[in-house]
Amino acid sequence: MAPQSRDPLPTFLLTRPEAQGARFAAALRDAFGPDIRIVTSPLMMPEFLSPAIAEQPEALIFTSETGVEACRRLASPELEGVGRAWCVGNRTARAARAAGFEARSADGDAEALVAAILGTGERGPLLHLRGAESRGDVAGRLSAQGIPTAEAIVYDQRPKPLSAEAIDALGGGRPVLAPLFSPRTARLLTAEVARGAPGAVLWIAALSPAVAEAAASLPAQRRQIAAQPDADALLDAVKALLDAQSDA
């Protein structure tokens, strides 16, 4: 149920890739009602790549749903017959299972993923299929601990400018609440706001301290960091921002 307030709810600005943005938009409508205003303007679009795979791994590592989709598109004999996957979180694991893998979720971030793999007696070799920009040095840390792990860049996220609708919302004088899921998205939004809507009234809900740090230069009136790096916790951070509005 939407919080009671004398003021209307802010506009929600979703900057994730379209599929993930649509899922979070549905969660927002479930939480705050079907009539909230949501502006969807992805700041990145995936470009899928086809790197050569040197050898067949015992299992794959996925740190995003986009990595799973890239794997589905990758025609590589070295990946045929690979049936296991380690996944950073539950959504990524569900995507991997849908792609036919026996997937295990670390239910967290890169730190949790490395710890989960190290704690199971995994011997490798492993292969991390990742994006061009990645945090946590998963392959390097596992290799240093005796589990040979290679990595292949299977997609890149190309920047996209904010849509005209998003710029209009940011320049409209009313608060705009932006849930931010990644440091790169935070940096891209910072540049877009500086270029097209420097007077925006922004509230920022950040998935993690790293995302909040990347968003530090945004001219935000209110900020909230999720208690843990997942979509449910980020939705709670959004609720906290709206509760603060109601109490003001």
Rank of each mutant, 00 (worst) to 15 (best):
A144M: 01
G119N: 09
Q224M: 14
R184K: 10
P34G: 05
M45T: 11
L241I: 05
L189Y: 13
R123Q: 14
A112D: 15
D232S: 07
P125V: 12
R174Q: 12
G119L: 04
S208R: 06
K160E: 15
P57F: 12
G172Q: 09
L74F: 14
P179Q: 07
A152Y: 06
P42M: 13
D243A: 06
T92A: 03
P161E: 11
V114P: 00
R16F: 08
A116N: 05
R141N: 04
V138L: 01
Q145V: 00
S217G: 10
A248K: 02
D247R: 09
R187P: 01
A110W: 04
E55W: 05
E69Q: 12
Q56K: 13
L189W: 13
L74H: 14
E165D: 15
P125F: 12
S246A: 15
K160Y: 05
T40G: 13
E133K: 13
R37P: 04
D168S: 10
L129M: 06
R158C: 06
A116T: 11
R195L: 13
A150M: 07
G124K: 03
Q145E: 10
P42E: 12
V176Q: 01
G124P: 01
L235C: 01
F32V: 12
V82P: 00
P179K: 07
T63S: 15
S143N: 02
S64F: 13
L74Q: 12
L242K: 12
V176G: 01
D137Y: 04
A206P: 02
S50H: 11
R135L: 03
L43Q: 02
G171E: 02
E58Q: 15
Q157K: 11
S50A: 15
D107L: 05
R222L: 06
P3E: 07
R94P: 00
R223M: 08
L207P: 02
A216C: 09
S163Q: 08
P17C: 04
E165M: 07
E102L: 14
P229A: 12
